[in-house]
Measured scan of single mutants.
Amino acid sequence: HNLTITQGKLFFHYNPKLCLSEIHKMEEVSGTKGRQERNDIALKTNGDQASCENELLKFSYIRTSFDKILLRWEPYWPPDFRDLLGFMLFYKEAPYQNVTEFDGQDACGSNSWTVVDIDPPLRSNDPKSQNHPGWLMRGLKPWTQYAIFVKTLVTFSDERRTYGAKSDIIYVQTDATNPSVPLDPISVSNSSSQIILKWKPPSDPNGNITHYLVFWERQAEDSELFELDYCLKGLKLPSRTWSPPFESEDSQKHNQSEYEDSAGECCSCPKTDSQILKELEESSFRKTFEDYLHNVVFVPRKTSSGTGAEDPRPSRKRRSLGDVGNVTVAVPTVAAFPNTSSTSVPTSPEEHRPFEKVVNKESLVISGLRHFTGYRIELQACNQDTPEERCSVAAYVSARTMPEAKADDIVGPVTHEIFENNVVHLMWQEPKEPNGLIVLYEVSYRRYGDEELHLCVSRKHFALERGCRLRGLSPGNYSVRIRATSLAGNGSWTEPTYFYVTDYLDVPSNIA
């Protein structure tokens, strides 16, 4: 807008934040220059609390790290170098490059900038070799853009010569660093050979998330399962459950009422301010606690030095998902009996873990797994792929695949051998790939016309006998059925096997 004052003059007093240069501009645009008398524009009460600059400061050096910015700028000295009290560095987070010096300023003089007072450097006698002032900004957020400017702080001049310097606002972004852990990993099994893994992005990506790394490792069953005799009275049979499938998407929606109208769909109840505040506090606490764990609990591995020492970490090797089922080394339970199943799973520490690289999504279907087997899954978020990966501390989750139908069934015939004193040795093959492992066998036998009897055969007993022995049988026709019990439950009964026990007292003698 054009402003013209045809008559009258300007009068400025007691404006401590208004620089004289701005008042002189007002004289020019209003056409009143030359009308004012000496005392109409006070030299001592206008701009006496402001830094009124008329020179431009330029930054000469900028260096960044993930949490620091090192700045240096060209030296500046007023005509009387004693008038320079120091520099004021202003900075704040700036997602967009549209910041002005006066953003967030209120009537009390406060604003949204963080201000650092910096002492002037030592003055050199040689004007050509003056030290460049600077400042190291610490405690910054990774991968965050900051708006920065600097200006001088000078003393009051009796001659009211307006001098000083100020830089333009520059924008500097800190470097990326390792992201925080992925949030809320959930693993479920939808079949006997697959596990579905879902997660949420890290709360602090500290860069642009480029991919996720998912490692999985087959877990050995508890050692007590191999040692305890679950045929003993009072000892509860062990059981394991597989990871249940995901709930429906509708039930997972946030901010939804727990109660549904019987007449149909209901609208979600909005969260109160107290609920939102509580969630923010919980989120802040979780982030602080995660940072504490990362800094205190997890110790970084030592990389190899120039002395030739090897990095103890196993090298990563990509495998196809079809090879995942046989990740671990199978060892027989008892070496003397080769027909026992290889369900003991000690994992070799030198073995390469299978892994998958996930790009542009937060889910993965891990296939080719062994049925009813526990897996430990390790999830890392990465925001750099080359020249070397920059990934987060791992988040861990466990899951067990679903049982395989008929995996616990005894394959092959049940054979028998009759000894003296009416002892019958029953023999059968253990299931080759049971659900988890076989903890015991149930032997059901009966003599024709009598009630059915049951015998429990422990895992250890089966390994020693290759089956079991029935003792003290009365003469007669017998039928026997056997079924295995694994961590997933009972298998199917075998087809009945028949044998006849004679009275050993009636056996004919070869003595003449």
Rank of each mutant, 00 (worst) to 15 (best):
S203W: 05
N206H: 11
G207I: 05
G207D: 05
N208F: 06
I209G: 12
T210Q: 05
H211C: 01
H211W: 09
Y212T: 09
F215A: 15
F215N: 09
F215D: 10
E217G: 11
A220C: 15
D222Q: 04
D222E: 04
S223D: 10
S223Q: 10
S223V: 11
S223N: 11
E224Q: 12
E224A: 09
F226R: 13
L228H: 03
D229F: 13
D229E: 06
Y230L: 13
C231M: 02
L232S: 09
L232I: 11
G234K: 08
G234Q: 09
L235F: 11
K236G: 15
K236E: 14
L237R: 13
L237F: 06
P238T: 09
P238R: 06
P244S: 11
P244E: 10
P245Y: 12
F246W: 11
F246K: 10
E247T: 08
S248L: 11
E249C: 09
E249K: 14
E249V: 08
D250A: 09
S251R: 10
S251V: 09
S251N: 09
Q252R: 08
Q252Y: 05
N255P: 15
Q256Y: 13
Q256C: 13
Q256H: 10
S257P: 13
S257A: 13
S257F: 14
E260S: 10
S262H: 07
S262M: 13
E265I: 09
C266T: 09
S268V: 12
S268I: 10
C269L: 10
C269A: 09
K271R: 13
T272A: 12
K278N: 09
E281D: 06
E281S: 08
S283T: 06
S283P: 08
S283A: 11
F285L: 10
T288D: 12
F289L: 09
D291M: 12
Y292L: 06
Y292G: 03
H294V: 10
N295M: 14
V296F: 05
F298P: 04
K302D: 15
K302F: 12
K302I: 10
T303R: 09
S304P: 08
S305L: 08
E310K: 01
E310P: 11
D311L: 15
S315R: 08
R316Q: 04
R316G: 05
R318M: 05
S320V: 11
S320M: 05
D323P: 09
G325E: 06
V327D: 10
V327R: 12
V329S: 10
V331Q: 11
P332Q: 12
T333M: 15
V334C: 04
A336M: 08
F337P: 14
F337V: 11
P338R: 10
P338D: 05
T340C: 07
T340P: 12
T340M: 14
T340L: 08
S342N: 08
T343L: 06
T347P: 09
P349R: 12
R353D: 14
P354C: 11
N360Y: 05
K361W: 06
K361M: 07
S363L: 07
V365A: 14
I366A: 03
I366D: 00
S367Q: 09
R370V: 11
H371F: 12
G374R: 03
Y375R: 01
I377R: 00
E378S: 07
L379P: 01
L379T: 04
Q380V: 06
A381G: 04
C382F: 00
N383Y: 13
Q384P: 07
Q384W: 14
D385C: 14
P387R: 08
R390Q: 06
R390V: 13
C391K: 02
C391A: 02
S392E: 03
A394T: 11
A394P: 07
Y396H: 11
Y396E: 07
V397S: 10
V397G: 09
V397I: 01
S398C: 13
S398A: 11
A399V: 11
M402W: 11
M402S: 15
A405H: 13
K406M: 09
A407F: 09
D408F: 00
D408H: 01
D409S: 09
I410V: 15
V414Y: 01
T415F: 08
T415L: 14
T415N: 03
H416Q: 10
E417R: 13
E420L: 04
N421A: 08
V424G: 02
M427Y: 00
Q429C: 14
E430H: 12
E430R: 06
P431W: 00
N435E: 01
G436Y: 01
I438L: 07
V439R: 06
V439P: 05
V439C: 05
Y441N: 01
E442G: 09
E442S: 13
E442W: 09
V443Y: 01
R446P: 00
R447H: 07
R447F: 02
G449S: 07
D450S: 14
D450Q: 13
H454P: 04
H454E: 07
H454V: 06
H454I: 14
H454A: 04
L455G: 09
C456R: 03
C456G: 01
V457K: 05
S458K: 14
R459L: 12
H461F: 13
F462S: 04
E465C: 07
R466Q: 03
R466D: 13
R469N: 13
R469W: 08
L470Q: 01
L470F: 03
L470N: 01
R471Y: 15
G472Y: 10
P475R: 07
P475I: 08
V480A: 06
V480M: 07
R481H: 06
R481T: 11
I482Y: 01
I482V: 13
I482Q: 08
R483Y: 02
A484Q: 02
T485C: 15
N490C: 11
T494P: 01
T494Y: 02
E495T: 11
E495S: 10
P496I: 04
P496M: 03
T497C: 15
Y498R: 12
Y498Q: 07
Y500D: 08
Y500N: 12
Y500Q: 06
Y500I: 09
Y500R: 06
D503A: 07
Y504N: 04
Y504F: 08
Y504L: 14
D506K: 04
P508I: 03
S509N: 12
S509P: 09
